[in-house]
Nucleic acid binder design. Structure first.
Lengths: 213, 213
DNA sequence: TAACCTACCAAACACTTGTTAGGGAAGGAC
DNA sequence: GTCCTTCCCTAACAAGTGTTTGGTAGGTTA
């Protein structure tokens, strides 16, 4: 492709100034967009609101992004990529089922700490987004997610470390939901660190809240 | 108020035909509106979509309702009224803390069974709605809700039936969220009844998923 | 029959939405 | 200096939004 057909002007690597400065601004804008999306909801968020928060006008956003939807896509893709980096590390570590569950939960709360806005958006909008083929990667991620959790739970039941009398699928949903909805009330810098929340949550899920006799 | 100033024509009780027929239609329309709101999100739902599902034109909805927002308000009010009917019955029954928790959870899943759409809407939109004074009743309900759950948990800790080493507020959030997010995947008429889901959920929350030794 | 009411339709309204086109100021490259 | 690129602004567009107004078919009442 000798003749660039893309709208964004091509810059040779040699000339590019302050390499990555443009991408830094891009990330900055995505950060504020994610926060507005998370707070007001994707549909209720106008590009003018995003521009306001970024200190610019609506049209100027289109110098950096193709569309409002592509901003949303990039936010979710970035989040899921990092999430699976962490998950895969855990899943490939060869841990036992209980240790895997503990590590997955802890990793999840760390992701909430890092990507609070993206998680909140994912929670609220993913259900309607998966229908669009543009966001098909959400469905694929969901399948991998379910597979990872279900197999961990099933491994635990087989190894007699998790109870056998519970519906595994139901348990999966409870665990999954409770972990991720934390994004709706979690505030970074609060009195509980992600690890502390994970510890208490695991204690509750594994041993229950009732006193043992 | 001898002279009616309302837009909707006043009908004397004596003449009213098929008493409550209008209100039945009203409920019917709110039912379909709630389903569309739950499926697509409130902001993404246009009055034309609601009218489509109801087999009429957008403008015709305004014969029955003042605005799109008033439809949302009535949906949520109806749901919360019924919810608190059930909750108050439980809370006034003079049960012990563990029995109260069990009854509250079971009642919650029953409400999800009855008002699936309204619960889903509440979950998704309440956070943004409470800011508007029109929806101030949501904030009041949230306060009562938190008080009911927290006091039950604290009673349980004081009576040594619930563990004392858990952060009560954190426990409350986990219990609350896990119960209500069930509305996002629950389908009435599925293989699990509300009572069965409540039973399994309570078993998990109270005793944990780990095998005891 | 005549009057009236209910529940809807048809058509438009003012406004907001995401998006685009053209321009221009600032600053580095040569 | 001149050129060129970056990054934003101004101003508009077309489509879609919630809502209103006036009308009307069909049933009910008197």
């Amino acid at each position: 492709m000798p003749v660039p057909t893309k709208k964004k002007p091509q810059v040779t690597a040699a000339r590019r100034p302050a390499a990555g400065a443009a991408q830094a601004r891009r990330r900055e804008l995505l950060e504020t967009a994610a926060e507005v999306f998370a707070e007001q909801g994707y549909n209720a968020t106008t590009v003018r609101k995003i521009a306001d928060h970024a200190g610019m006008l609506a049209g100027s956003l289109y110098y950096h992004f193709d569309s409002k939807e592509s901003m949303l896509e990039e936010i979710l893709r970035t989040f899921l990529d990092e999430l699976w980096d962490g998950y895969d590390t855990v899943l490939d570590a060869g841990l036992g089922p209980r240790e895997t569950l503990e590590a997955l939960v802890t990793e999840s709360f760390r992701e909430i700490d890092r990507h609070r806005a993206a998680v909140a958006i994912y929670q609220k909008e993913s259900k309607q987004l998966v229908a669009q083929e543009r966001f098909g990667f959400l469905a694929e991620s969901q399948r991998r997610f379910e597979k990872a959790w279900l197999s961990t739970l099933e491994r635990g039941v087989a190894a007699h470390v998790f109870r056998a009398d519970l519906d595994v699928r139901l348990t999966y949903r409870f665990v999954r939901d409770t972990v991720w909805v934390a994004a709706s009330w979690y505030r970074p810098g609060g009195q509980h660190s992600p690890e502390e929340i994970a510890r208490q949550y695991l204690s509750m899920v594994l041993d229950g809240i009732a006193v043992r006799e």
